[in-house]
Nucleic acid binder design. Sequence first.
DNA 1: GCCGGAATTG
DNA 2: CAATTCCGGC
Length: 290
Amino acid sequence: MGNIQKPFRNHNSPELGRERDLSAVMEEKEQRSGDTHRFQSSGAVLFPDWAYKPAWSPGSRQVQLWHFLLELLGRGEGGAITWGSEWGEFVIRDPERLAKLWGERKGKPHMNYDKLSRALRYYYNKRILHKTKGKRFTYKFNFSKLILVNYPSLPTCPQNTTSVPFSAFPSQLSFYNPSIDRAVQSISHPLFLPYSFPKPLPFPQTHPIQRQFPRFSGPPPSGTNLSELSRLSPVNSALQFTQTLNWPVKSSTEWPLNRIMGLQERIKSGPQDKTNDNQEDRKIFPETMH
DNA sequence: GCCGGAATTG
DNA sequence: CAATTCCGGC
């Protein structure tokens, strides 16, 4: 992929700036009231706050640790680090090996788990991670919702494919290509990490590691077995969301996503099951919602 | 192992 | 700014 993604804000979404401002105000409010629940819920996107940080921003164009972790987890590198049993949880199987990999990436040959874990601990206050107490080498990402519904600057299909943006993973955006019945990864959304995934993944996901994280965005291609998808996804609120919004069903090639009219306003008003979403957030990571 | 303060770094 | 380095304490 030739062109490198620019940070969201500088890209073509001035809305995000407003959302950030709004969330900053909300955060202040929440801090005063002692409520630390800080999920942005404006517009069409429900993302954890930290997910808005672009992977490559002009100032700090360096890979961050959590990018790196998601990269390893995303491509199922296995061995050094794997997803845990819970949503967002991951287990460092080989701490020193992970440290070495991280050190290689950052050009720090003396990296070890002691130092790496300090970096992880700094993520606690930033609310990117928290510790799963009692489980050795086990941490948990603080994301609960990675839902993308027709966001204005949703990337278009990769060239010369007839795919539609379909599901969002923590670090990747999937495009479903009906001609090969595969979800192909295309990393072009700045909310996600700019790492490339060389191999197309079979669809529906059957790998347990990947199966943990499917999220649906945009309309499912026609002929998609919705009940099967909802079975595969442990949290299918996004699917409900799209159903609530009553996506018109078209063939998947007829989805010029940036040209869906009338939908924008409906999305702005948000899903009606807001209370359910919040309850779900608490279920997913009660530890951070004290 | 895990925590977090403190100083330092690019 | 996001670690890195070091470390005393539990």
